[in-house]
Computed example of a mutant assay.
Amino acid sequence: MAPRTNPSPAPGESEEDVCRQVLRILSLIGDKWSILVIGQLRDGTLRFGELHRAVTGISQRMLTLTLRQLERDGLLTRTVHAGVPPRVEYTLTELGTTLLDSAIALGEWATTHRHEINDNRRRYDAAHPS
């Protein structure tokens, strides 16, 4: 297991401030849509429609909001190419690429353990009827 890193707060920043910032970032990049979008962009640039087809179950509105947030966080770039209609492409940034290994590992973990987790849920639900 890799050693845990706990960087010191920057001057004027409390440990509580650091924790709040980290929690906000994790809540944004840890939602299911962000992880799926990042995973789809692992092989390169995709257009909005390609992403919409690739991320099963996401609405156009939620995809738009997710892409906007990932762009705001600097994890992907949005490029608009002139034309009729305009072509919009999305690409992971260098920072976004650093998240790929963790996102893929998380997806692989979920795939590997899905049956065990589903069995645990069924047992729990049977023992704790609502």
Score class of each variant (00 low, 15 high):
A2P: 14
R72C: 07
T64A: 12
M62S: 10
A54P: 04
D17E: 07
D73K: 08
V37G: 00
A110F: 05
T93D: 11
S14L: 06
A2T: 13
W33E: 09
P86T: 02
A105P: 00
L63A: 04
V88G: 05
T111K: 13
L95I: 01
R68Y: 10
R61E: 06
L26Y: 14
Y124M: 09
T91L: 11
V18H: 02
T111I: 06
I25Y: 15
R78N: 06
T111V: 06
V84I: 04
H115Q: 10
A82I: 01
I38E: 04
I25D: 03
D119A: 14
R42H: 05
V18T: 09
S27H: 12
S27W: 11
L26W: 10
G12F: 07
G12H: 08
T93L: 05
A82P: 04
Q60Y: 02
Q40D: 08
S102W: 07
L95E: 12
M62P: 00
V80K: 15
P129N: 09
T5F: 10
R53C: 06
E116R: 15
E16P: 00
N120K: 12
L51Q: 04
R87N: 06
T66C: 14
Q69A: 08
G83P: 02
L67N: 09
R24Q: 09
H113Y: 13
F48L: 02
W33N: 10
A10T: 10
L46E: 05
I104R: 09
L70F: 08
D31I: 02
T45E: 14
L75S: 03
E50N: 03
D73I: 13
E94Y: 08
T77Y: 13
T64G: 04
Y90T: 03
D73P: 03
Y90E: 04
R68M: 13
S27E: 14
G30M: 08
G39E: 12
P9R: 05
E50T: 00
P7D: 13
R53N: 03
